[in-house]
Design a binder for these strands. Structure first.
Lengths: 108, 108
DNA sequence: CGTGTAAGGAATTCTGACACG
DNA sequence: CGTGTAAGGAATTCTGACACG
């Protein structure tokens, strides 16, 4: 469910590449960060670094925006989805499903 | 066997990040390219872009170099491994194993 | 609210070359 | 052979701001 951590979530992509990948302007990407929709990491000197997961998220955001959805709405939806997910995780923990599914997983 | 194409093989990482990820200097990374050990793509304006697969390859190269293996040797080994792989692919094709393993694969 | 843009500066990357060994 | 470095230029990224709507 969480996908492999490495490639998808490592924050290594610069904003210029993210712009190419998503079709969004750097201005838009930085603005969505300001609106708390994305959370890039920063290199030692302050350059933003994104993951493939971030790129996908930004593409979803771009689609929502095209539909006229405001950044505030998008954020609210994300928060709701997040809470829903946490809730599921908690109930699964109680059932011990985590170990069953991820306990004896092979590497990679 | 080929892993998922997307995240691991997309060339989106700049040389500076690759340098951080591998511990190699940019000079070394460019030199290994000159010796035909790595093949980054180029952005429209000429900036090198690497994949996670490239990063792993560079780490392997760094290890070989530490053992004193010359770039020429490393390249020869890579070529040999490549040919061996092609050979396997060919024999598998004949047996029709490709369809069996990749034909009805689900997305992602 | 969401995005473009000019502004000025700092950091990144590029190439070709000299250096050492 | 493998790598460091100074050199000069071009491209990238950053921030804060003004603009429009």
């Amino acid at each position: 469910m969480e996908d492999q951590y490495s490639y998808k979530k490592r924050k290594v992509i610069t904003i210029g590449v993210v712009s190419e990948l998503t079709g969004l302007s750097e201005r838009q990407i930085r603005y969505y960060e300001e609106r708390k929709l994305v959370y890039p990491e920063r290199s030692p000197k302050g350059n933003r670094k994104y993951s493939f997961a971030d790129v996908e998220l930004l593409i979803d955001i771009a689609n929502k925006r095209e539909e006229g959805v405001q950044t505030y709405e998008i954020r609210q939806d994300m928060i709701r989805a997040e809470k829903k997910k946490e809730k599921q995780m908690r109930s699964r923990l109680l059932k011990g499903e985590i170990n069953a599914r991820f306990g004896i997983q092979k590497e990679r």
